[in-house]
Amino acid sequence: MDSLVVLVLCLSCLLLLSLWRQSSGRGKLPPGPTPLPVIGNILQIGIKDISKSLTNLSKVYGPVFTLYFGLKPIVVLHGYEAVKEALIDLGEEFSGRGIFPLAERANRGFGIVFSNGKKWKEIRRFSLMTLRNFGMGKRSIEDRVQEEARCLVEELRKTKASPCDPTFILGCAPCNVICSIIFHKRFDYKDQQFLNLMEKLNENIKILSSPWIQICNNFSPIIDYFPGTHNKLLKNVAFMKSYILEKVKEHQESMDMNNPQDFIDCFLMKMEKEKHNQPSEFTIESLENTAVDLFGAGTETTSTTLRYALLLLLKHPEVTAKVQEEIERVIGRNRSPCMQDRSHMPYTDAVVHEVQRYIDLLPTSLPHAVTCDIKFRNYLIPKGTTILISLTSVLHDNKEFPNPEMFDPHHFLDEGGNFKKSKYFMPFSAGKRICVGEALAGMELFLFLTSILQNFNLKSLVDPKNLDTTPVVNGFASVPPFYQLCFIPV
Score class of each variant (00 low, 15 high):
211 P>W: 07
218 N>H: 12
224 D>L: 07
303 S>A: 14
451 S>R: 05
419 F>D: 02
180 S>G: 07
15 L>V: 14
234 L>Y: 06
111 G>E: 05
426 M>F: 08
193 Q>G: 09
414 D>L: 04
260 P>V: 10
395 L>S: 11
11 L>K: 01
280 S>L: 08
131 L>S: 03
323 V>E: 02
449 L>R: 01
327 I>P: 00
46 G>S: 09
466 N>I: 08
425 F>D: 10
117 G>C: 05
26 R>K: 15
169 I>T: 09
467 L>Q: 05
416 G>T: 14
237 V>G: 06
54 L>V: 12
314 L>C: 09
469 T>C: 08
378 N>Y: 03
104 E>C: 07
342 R>Q: 07
165 D>L: 00
485 L>T: 09
309 A>D: 00
480 P>A: 10
265 D>V: 02
370 V>H: 04
322 K>D: 08
48 K>E: 06
429 S>M: 07
132 R>W: 07
452 I>R: 01
187 F>V: 03
139 R>V: 13
220 S>G: 14
196 N>K: 15
218 N>I: 14
372 C>L: 06
204 N>G: 06
26 R>V: 12
352 V>L: 13
353 H>Y: 02
264 I>P: 04
66 T>L: 03
170 L>K: 00
177 V>N: 00
337 P>R: 00
281 E>C: 10
451 S>E: 10
418 N>Q: 11
215 I>E: 02
399 K>E: 15
34 T>Q: 15
322 K>R: 15
398 N>F: 11
167 T>R: 09
34 T>G: 05
85 E>T: 09
32 G>S: 04
90 L>V: 10
50 I>A: 08
19 L>P: 00
256 D>F: 07
339 M>F: 08
171 G>T: 14
419 F>Q: 02
434 I>A: 15
205 I>T: 11
85 E>D: 12
330 V>E: 12
251 H>K: 09
471 P>Q: 03
241 K>A: 03
336 S>G: 12
26 R>P: 08
292 V>L: 15
347 Y>W: 11
131 L>Y: 05
42 I>M: 08
461 L>H: 08
144 R>I: 13
440 L>Y: 02
313 L>V: 02
246 E>L: 07
485 L>A: 10
131 L>V: 11
458 L>H: 00
301 T>L: 13
472 V>D: 05
65 F>A: 01
208 L>S: 10
473 V>T: 12
32 G>V: 00
397 D>A: 05
453 L>S: 01
121 K>N: 15
326 E>A: 01
58 S>F: 03
23 S>P: 15
141 I>S: 04
372 C>V: 11
8 V>R: 00
441 A>R: 02
9 L>R: 00
365 S>E: 06
239 F>G: 11
71 L>K: 13
201 L>M: 08
173 A>D: 01
446 F>V: 00
122 E>C: 09
374 I>P: 00
302 T>I: 15
398 N>I: 12
265 D>S: 14
425 F>P: 05
37 P>V: 03
66 T>G: 01
277 N>T: 09
145 V>R: 00
195 L>K: 15
189 Y>S: 04
417 G>V: 04
49 D>Q: 05
448 F>P: 00
270 K>D: 05
280 S>D: 13
414 D>G: 06
441 A>M: 05
5 V>N: 09
327 I>F: 00
160 K>V: 07
389 I>W: 02
374 I>T: 13
231 N>E: 03
309 A>R: 00
72 K>L: 02
69 F>R: 07
288 E>M: 14
217 N>A: 14
264 I>H: 03
148 E>R: 00
294 L>S: 01
354 E>D: 02
474 N>P: 05
175 C>R: 03
34 T>M: 11
462 V>R: 10
98 G>Q: 10
357 R>I: 00
409 P>F: 01
41 N>T: 07
398 N>D: 14
219 F>T: 05
258 N>E: 11
374 I>S: 10
80 Y>C: 04
67 L>S: 03
204 N>E: 04
222 I>D: 02
47 I>L: 15
319 V>Y: 09
172 C>S: 15
325 E>V: 14
442 G>L: 05
453 L>T: 03
63 P>K: 08
269 M>F: 09
34 T>L: 09
292 V>D: 03
170 L>N: 00
287 L>G: 02
113 V>T: 14
379 Y>G: 02
71 L>W: 15
302 T>L: 11
155 E>A: 15
461 L>R: 07
365 S>A: 14
111 G>D: 06
14 L>S: 06
453 L>N: 02
209 S>W: 05
365 S>N: 09
417 G>M: 10
235 K>L: 07
170 L>M: 11
312 L>S: 02
400 E>I: 06
308 Y>H: 08
88 I>R: 06
241 K>L: 01
449 L>P: 00
74 I>R: 03
151 C>Y: 14
175 C>V: 10
337 P>D: 01
226 F>E: 01
487 F>C: 02
58 S>C: 06
482 F>K: 14
165 D>M: 00
447 L>C: 09
368 H>V: 04
27 G>P: 13
54 L>I: 13
323 V>K: 01
427 P>D: 06
194 F>V: 06
470 T>L: 15
378 N>G: 14
219 F>Q: 02
233 L>A: 14
353 H>K: 03
412 F>A: 00
161 A>L: 04
287 L>A: 05
330 V>G: 03
338 C>F: 07
95 S>C: 07
275 K>A: 08
93 E>V: 12
359 I>T: 15
118 K>F: 11
482 F>P: 15
162 S>T: 14
341 D>N: 00
186 R>E: 02
120 W>M: 11
399 K>A: 15
207 I>G: 04
205 I>Y: 15
250 E>V: 08
416 G>N: 14
359 I>L: 08
385 T>K: 01
483 Y>Q: 01
234 L>P: 04
279 P>A: 14
119 K>S: 13
372 C>H: 15
69 F>P: 02
351 V>N: 00
286 S>E: 12
282 F>P: 03
57 L>Q: 07
392 T>S: 14
185 K>P: 01
440 L>Q: 02
118 K>W: 06
104 E>R: 13
